[in-house]
Design a protein around this nucleic acid. Structure first.
Lengths: 218, 218
DNA sequence: TCTCTATCGATAATGGACTATCGATAGATG
DNA sequence: CATCTATCGATAGTCCATTATCGATAGAGA
């Protein structure tokens, strides 16, 4: 099997390729074109693509539809991915209206909240149920992914319920760490940390600007 | 200067250490303790810490307050970091209520939106101004960071205005790429991609589960 | 005082990712 | 038909991160 273990760095770039390939109108697309448009190295793009597709041909490049399909398969989004939202506060409801899930096959199946006591209600098209319904729902719909958007103080308790409901991957928006069994994966979605990263980067460039009086040229 | 260029991977872990050290009640904390609580390698923690602090002593570890201070300085959050929110829709207003900024020194100075025509209004404590006010505000308050929470169709136009206003780092929630000058840094905050990542990981573990009948033990 | 243990910092070895360069192929051109 | 060009895939070299191992130090206990 060629899909043994895709390099992590490659996986990070595949969505970029997919996003671009989807906008391409021509029947063929080359790694060179992709690299130029995305500001990446030509060789790197070619290496990444060679790992997930065998449709490339010299002089002409890749057939765009087939490459798109191969990218979607490599990313596992050729079929729908159901997910639930736990926590229907500001962030949770904002995500219910998020327009970025559809292109990647993510399907928010339902939302759950402690304040939806016994009476399921709706936010637009989305049903919001009480937390007590989480277990049965996840089992019935075979949901393995959960988005956690409760306040930090409630995060651990909510996460425990998610794990007990069969969720094996949690995207955690709460700015805190949650403890889960080793077979469950947690990814932090910390907005503040992302900003701190950005600030470090630009602080660094500001220091470089101060050094511009010297002979450094980048 | 020892702070030449901190390894990227280390920077990703520093916030974890800071988060943990802040919860520590004892006057001393050792790399071993941190490693155990965070599930990381003992040596890795020690190496990371040795790059940002010289307070470590054999047998006793690090003085918690000094280590916390050194971590905050390394992350550049020992002073307030002002940022603006562009786009006061669902996501934007959700972020105005986000409780995770304060521990990392992020200060949302104001929000801006096209629909706030000329009349600044408030969301809780937060002022929301028209986009036309962005330029003057960023210059006056020396804001260099911006959070972009407009729909994908408006993202590029809004980003252009942010760049023109002196913003040099953009955290982009819109599920699309935006083109900026080379001196401006953009970080994508793509919730769908994060879920795709998670799904790939757990799909992989599901394949491993099917292999559990073999002799593999992890 | 001497030894033992926990911890630190430093150095070496392994592995993964990126970059550069090469040969091979398919179409275009003369 | 021969040559040229754009593109692919593959290999080798360099760099960075992680892991493993070592010596050194400070406090605990005999």
């Amino acid at each position: 099997m060629e899909n043994a273990t895709l390099p992590k760095a490659t996986v990070d770039r595949l969505p970029l390729y997919l996003q671009f390939v989807r906008t391409v109108q021509t029947p063929m697309v080359s790694a060179t074109t992709i690299a130029r448009n995305l500001g990446l190295g030509e060789v790197q793009v070619r290496k990444d693509l060679s790992m997930i597709s065998r449709e490339g041909q010299p002089k002409v490049g890749y057939p765009a539809p087939k490459l798109q399909r191969d990218l979607e398969i490599a990313l596992g989004i050729h079929e729908r991915i159901p997910a639930v939202i736990v926590g229907a506060g500001k962030m949770g409801t904002a995500l219910m209206d998020y327009d970025g899930f559809e292109p990647y096959g993510i399907e928010i199946a339902a939302a759950f909240d402690n304040h939806a006591q016994q009476i399921p209600f709706k936010h637009g098209e989305m049903s919001i149920y009480a937390m007590s319904k989480l277990h049965a729902f996840c089992l019935e719909h075979e949901v393995k992914l959960g988005i956690l958007t409760v306040p930090a103080t409630a995060a651990q308790d909510a996460a425990d319920q998610m794990v007990a409901s069969g969720i094996i991957a949690i995207l955690n928006f709460a700015p805190c760490h949650i403890r889960v069994p080793s077979q469950v994966t947690v990814q932090q979605m910390n907005v503040a940390l992302a900003l701190v990263h950005l600030n470090m980067m630009v602080s660094h460039t500001k220091e470089q600007e101060e050094l511009q009086y010297g002979k450094q040229i980048l």
